[in-house]
Simulated assay, not measured.
Amino acid sequence: MGVLPELTKRHQVLLLAGGDALEALAPVHPVIPIPTLRYAYAGSRLSALETLRQNYPVLSDLLSCGEEEQRVTDLLAAFKPHVAICDVDPFTHRAAARLGVPRISFDHFGILAYCRPHVPLRHRPAALRDALVYRLLVGQPERAIVSSFYSAPPVRSGVRCVGPLLRDELFAVKAERGDEVLVYLNQGRHQYTPHVEHALRALDNPVLVYGTGEEGTDGSITYRRTDNRRFIEDMARCRALVCTAGNQIVGEALHLGKPLLVLPEESTEQRINACAVERLGIGEQVSFGDLKAGVLRRFLSRTESYVERMRWLARDGRRDAVDALERFAAELTAGRGPVERFRRAA
């Protein structure tokens, strides 16, 4: 999303996307829907069994080169791209590989496969497992770009680590220090439990909650439905952010200088992100089960020290990402004619 406007100025772009990316991209560019793999919940917790059950039709199609995989392959064959830019989506990776189209992997999760991030000892077995699954899904792309709010050295040539891809709307707001605590939960219908609500209600600060699908005010808590512009405005003037540990939200909070109390989901990537938040000195982490009013108050009492660190660590990776994409595309298409067409999968 962050580099798409620049790519469309320079190249013909065929955009395929699924899941949340489809919803975000459809208003700004023509996009072809494709299936996607997703985490699934059982109650308030991520469930490996439920994730496998819900994703079985997609995995079956991938393993058997079924109808959806053939459809994606046919789309690429008709478009005849010089380069395929793919995130973790396995359909586009496999289709491009079958057609002999050079691939540039472009996502955050690749930091586990293509870089050497700092991984605490307790998370290393799971990190190795997830990196192996990632490689099995996407194969071996010729180049890789990793967008991350923290840096990590690459494991081989042809890999570039860039900063988070910030949205244009972030540069249209002015960061101010307000009193509200902003809460963002990417799966709020599962994650916003009575336990979490109780901890937030015990605060003296007003609270804004995004991600539950609700709208309205109940005591000190105001619920808001997803609205990107309003969310950015609220983030710009909040005191601090309580959120899941996704790379994008952390990068945006860094840019606006908003201290973070992160609640990592039960995935290795988010756990490593949460550890990076603490290691960089820009916030703290706590599990959903351990979130209490006392934890929130102690975190809020230390926010000034985190703000100071954030001033030195904020960065926008869009320019570096576009430069890396152009350079990698030129390398991969040398002798194949001009780089006129990109195929972007999100």
Rank of each mutant, 00 (worst) to 15 (best):
P125W: 01
R341S: 02
R45Y: 10
L256Y: 09
H195L: 08
G163R: 06
F171K: 12
D179F: 02
L75D: 06
P57V: 00
E284Y: 02
P90W: 01
V242M: 10
V101S: 09
G213E: 09
A321V: 06
T244V: 13
E197T: 03
G289S: 12
L76R: 13
R156P: 15
S147L: 01
L203N: 08
C275S: 12
T8V: 15
R297E: 10
T51Q: 07
Q70S: 11
A345N: 15
G335F: 05
R344W: 15
A127M: 00
K258S: 04
R116P: 12
K80A: 12
V28Y: 09
Y306R: 07
D130V: 01
C86A: 03
E214L: 08
A346R: 00
H118G: 07
V286A: 12
I34R: 12
E308N: 00
A293E: 13
A199G: 03
R45M: 09
L241T: 05
P117T: 00
R135W: 14
E304D: 15
A152P: 14
A131G: 09
Q270C: 00
R45Q: 13
V133A: 12
R318N: 13
C243H: 08
H190V: 00
S305C: 04
R189T: 14
G100N: 08
A253T: 09
P206H: 06
T333G: 12
V250W: 08
V295E: 08
E265K: 03
C65A: 11
A40Q: 14
V28M: 10
T36Y: 07
D168C: 00
C238E: 05
R315F: 09
R103Y: 11
E23G: 01
M1P: 15
V155D: 11
V159S: 08
Q12L: 01
E176M: 01
A48Q: 10
L137H: 02
I32W: 15
D320E: 15
E50H: 04
P206Y: 00
C65S: 13
E340H: 10
E67M: 07
L16W: 05
P154R: 03
V58H: 14
Q54I: 03
P30R: 04
